[in-house]
């Protein structure tokens, strides 16, 4: 019960520890850019709702309901923004010799580790706003389904390319 591993030659405490890793933060530009994206979406949503209801007053008769719902949408996006501002500093990645790590989460802290020899393929994605600021998002896929895919947002495009090349070289070595 006390010890996790019995009957083995290697000493578990001598294994490389994830706890000791030096984490690289995401690019500082990522936070404002993701906020801009969130708010464009939020305002469009709110705008559509208001537009439909103000031109077509039969849908919802009471004015205060219309304004209340719009306020609710704005409040929701304020909350989302707060979470992403506070959560930003918890997002970080690290490349080790044999695996790639990514951590995230404000309330639920997650750390995922993905060995290079399990990588199936990887992708670099750039949204329209990201492209203007030369940022990119790296996605690394395994055979473990969507749950185990690793997504690192907010990388400089050039870094993302470099990391991708590195990962693909590492994963090709194993085949």
């Amino acid at each position: 019960m006390e010890n996790l591993f019995t009957n083995q030659q290697i000493d578990v405490s001598a294994l490389p520890q994830i706890q000791d890793v030096t984490w690289s933060p995401l690019n500082k530009k990522y936070l404002p850019i993701s906020l801009i994206g969130t708010w464009i979406f939020g305002l469009i949503l709110c705008g559509i709702f208001l537009g439909v209801n103000l031109t077509n007053t039969d849908l919802i008769e009471a004015d205060w309901v219309v304004w209340g719902v719009s306020g609710g949408i704005i409040l929701l996006f304020v909350l989302i923004s707060i979470v992403s501002i506070l959560g930003f500093k918890h997002k970080a990645y690290a490349l080790r010799e044999h695996d790639i790590l990514y951590k995230s989460g404000l309330i639920f802290r997650k750390t995922i580790a993905l060995p290079y020899n399990r990588v199936q393929h990887s992708e670099i994605n750039q949204g329209p706003i990201e492209r203007n600021f030369d940022l990119a998002q790296l996605e690394v896929f395994t055979a473990g389904g969507s749950n185990s895919d690793l997504v690192i947002p907010g990388l400089l495009n050039e870094d993302a390319q470099r990391i991708k090349t590195f990962i693909m070289a590492k994963s090709a070595n194993h085949e």
């Binding site: 578990v12 994830i18 020899n117 399990r118 055979a143 194993h174």
Partner: peptide, 19 residues
Amino acid sequence: LELKNYALYKVESENRPWM
């Protein structure tokens, strides 16, 4: 953490085909 470190060690050191 011990389990995670050990599992990663197994996957990365053995390098056996998983299918």
